[in-house]
Each structure stands twice: as C-alpha cells, then as structure tokens.
Amino acid sequence: MSVSVLMLAARIALAACLYAFLALVLVTLWRDLRAAAGVQPAGSAHFSLRRLREDGTTDRDYPLQKESCFIGRSPSLEVSLADETVSVVHARLWKEAGRWWLEDLDSRNGTLLNQIPVSKKTVLCAGDRIRTGRILLEFRIEDSSQPPAKIQPRATDTPA
C-alpha cells in the first residue's frame, strides 16, 4: 500500500513538473507576444529613422517627432531624401493605436520593408529595414531610461 502511495506521489510530481514546464513556456510566449504587439515604452521612447550607407554604416538620423511623418524627395518633408530614385512624396509613417505604421504612397520605385514590397499599411517593429528607391532606412526605437531586453535594438551595424 505504501509503495502505491509513493508511486502516486511520484506520478503527481511528474505531472506537476510537466505542466509547470508548460506554464513557464506559455508565460515566455505570452511575454514575447506582448512585446511583439508593440507594447512599447510610452513616454520615454524616442523613435527615429536611420539612413544607412551601402556598407551599413550610419549616414544620418531622422527623428520622428510628429505623429505622422512623410518620406520623400521634397525638402519640406520630415524625412527628406535627396535622391532621384525617391519619389517626391514616397511613403508615410504614422502612429496609431500605440504603434508605428508604414504606407507606400504610390511611389514610382516602391517601398520595401525587409525586402518585401509594402502594398498596404504595415506595422513597424524596431530594427525594421525600409528601402525607398535605393535608400535604406532603419526604424529605431530608443529608450533612454531602461529598454526591455526583448525589444532592444541590436546588431544595427550588420549590412543587409
């Protein structure tokens, strides 16, 4: 009888370990999903587009200070790129529901997001590469206070 009770205890412990493992896995998944869903640091976050050279080094940064910014050749735009492959008003970036979105504005050479053509409005994540014409831009989120490890931008210097 006592053996059976011990066995039962071992089996219960076994099941507890299995489901504790699963619970921890699911908690991790949930955290990642939340991070991915753009629960971004609200007040202290600083958004910018970084123009990269062909060798991957930084050309210059364009801070995104308004809720809605335009990319294009026109000098009056927030992100003004003096390059003939960029349309006058090429694409739009705007903040909606706590996340940044990208939209191509019928540009001649198209907009690529991580090498995929942007055909409708698309959510941006930190580290995303946006190509307008031959100009490569990186979408950056910086948090001066304490950035969460999960969404901290990294490997910014690797070439595409």
Binding site: D32, A35, A36, T122, C125, Q152, A155
Partner: peptide
Amino acid sequence: DKAPAAAAEARPD
C-alpha cells in the same frame, strides 16, 4: 541568435 532581437510578428509573412 542572428535574428534581430526586436519582436517582429507583425510583419507580413
């Protein structure tokens, strides 16, 4: 390890 650390589930794939 190579993938960008930023979560990017929202991308169109």
